[in-house]
Each structure stands twice: as structure tokens, then as C-alpha cells.
Amino acid sequence: MSRRLLWPVLALVALLLVNVFVTPSFLSLRMQDGHLFGSLVDILRNGAPTLLIALGMTLVIATRGIDLSVGAVAAIAGAVTCTHIAAGGDPFSGMAIALALCALMGLWNGFLVSVVGVQPIIATLVLMTAGRGIAMLITEGQIITVDNPAYRQIGAGFLVLPIAILISVAALVGVALVTRRTALGLLIESVGVNPEASRLAGVRSRTIIWTVYVFVALCSGVAGLMISSNVSAADANNAGLWIEMDAILAVVIGGTSLAGGRYSLTGTLLGALIIQTLTTTVYTIGVPPEVTLVFKAVVVLAVCLLQAPALSRALAPRRKVVLP
């Protein structure tokens, strides 16, 4: 266990302990009709979309970027698929169209960032603003409900465990394998740590940046499908609302610096779990769920301050750089 994951792990354990203390049956799991049920399973299922987007966001942040448009992209994916199904289309072709559109939006963001050279935060603000409008354009402002068992599987289906979490974990494992088995992870970190040295070493940073923006858009698309499938409806206004903030938060809590460079997928997983567990905890201890935001704020501030260079200098002036 690396040192920088220590705080997130402690935070998660503490949250779980609070839950066990309040509800002793918190950790219990039971099988029913071949499905696994329990509070832990709920946490995983509800956290699946955030985890998936945070996964893509980790890579974007590792290149010194950020993507604010993920929530809007998720809403568009749900809108496209549900409209397609509602018009009598096949759910699979609907999802394929949706994801292709998401990839296109990722290309657009990547174009603005790597070719035009716009700061990532502004470049993706464009799609964040316009994206929900586009989603509403697709649904014509309605909440489109669909009744399609196949489509429902993605967000609400079970294969012992919820399918949504299986998808997210598969994506996590996939990304871990791809970035570590190929050289993608190395090149992403290299671009994030020192763009100029990477350029002089011949790294194609433009391609790398483009790749991560397309990837995060695809992740958002799938997450959007989960969200809309879970409720069998597309709500252009509220689907994936604030999920970009949760995703960024998960990444930051997981120890990946917004300044780019070394990233930790395990950290992101922990971060996403912490956020979801926090939501559940607030619910179980009987505070109105909306107040979760206050706790989130406290957690973010605490984690950021603990990671802040100024504070760590003050606390431990001569600490050596920690080897991972």
C-alpha cells in the first residue's frame, strides 16, 4: 500500500465503521433469486456511474487537463438511446449511436484543447453549457420513458452483482491493463509531468491528449446509459447533474493531483467509493440526504489541505519524496 493512498483508505474505513455502528446489519449480504443484496451492494451500484466517469477523468487530469462536460455528455447518451428506443428502435443500435456521438464530442473537446490550445476548463465549459441544451433538443424537452427489458439490464440488471458495477469494474481493470501493459500510461504521465521534456523526447502529446478526451467521453456515455437505464427514462435536465464534480472529487481524493502527472486508478476507485459511502452514511444516520453536500465539502477541503504542498512543508519540512 503506497503512502499516498493511506488517507483515502482510512477515510473509507472510518465511514464504513460509522455505518456498522449505526446499523449493525450494514455489512450483511444475502442472496435472493441469484441476486446479491445488501447495503454494500447498493453503494457499489449507485457509485458505478461516478466510478466510470472518474476513471476517464483520472487520465484527463493526469495530462494536466479537466473535463467539465461529462455530465452533459452522459445526459446526451441517455437521451439519444431512449429517444431511439421510444421511436421503436433496437436498444443496441441506439446505444451504439449514442456512444458514437459521445466519441465525437470527445474528439471535439480534444480538438479544442490540443489543437486550438484552449485551457481545458474553458474548452469543456462550452460543451457543459451547450450539451444539456442538445440533450433537451433530442428529447424535445420531455422526460422520455421507455420500457425495454434489454435496455434496463445495464443500469438495473443483475448478474449476481449489479451489472452496472460489473461494467465499471471491468472498465477499471481494462484501463489498468491497457495503460500498464501498453505504453499509454507512461506517455500520459510523461505529458502531464513535463510537457516540454516530453515534446523534446518525441512524444506525440497531441494524440495522447486527444485519446484521453475521447476515452472520458465514452466513459460518460456508458455512465449516462446506466443512469437512464436504471430509471428507464431520459431526463435531459437532471441526468448526470453534478456528476462531473463528483468525478473530479473522486480523482482528487484518490491522490491524483490536478496539476497532472502521476495518477492512481486505485485511488480513484477509493475516491468514488468514499463519495458514495458518504452519501449512504449521511442517509443512514438520519440526516436529510441533501446535507451530504456539507460533508462532501469538508472531506474535499480536508483531503486537499492534507495534500497541499504548503501544508506538508509546514508539517514536515524535511520529508523525503515518497517512492510509490
Binding site: 482528487v252 490536478l258 465539502a297 477541503l301
Partner: peptide
């Protein structure tokens, strides 16, 4: 927090956004 601890404004004000929104619901849902 932004100036003293050199945390990015984006993250600090994001936390501020959560805090303020959450405090609303502390007062009344």
C-alpha cells in the same frame, strides 16, 4: 485557503459550492 495553502481555486470553490448548497438544506429542506 487558495492563497495560503496554494490549493487550486477550482477545487476550493467547488468545496465552497458544496458547503453553501449543503448549508441551505441544514437550515431547511
Amino acid at each position: 485557503v487558495i492563497h495560503r495553502f496554494q490549493v487550486q481555486p477550482f477545487i476550493v470553490t467547488l468545496a465552497g459550492m458544496f458547503l453553501a448548497r449543503g448549508l441551505c438544506f441544514v437550515i431547511s429542506v
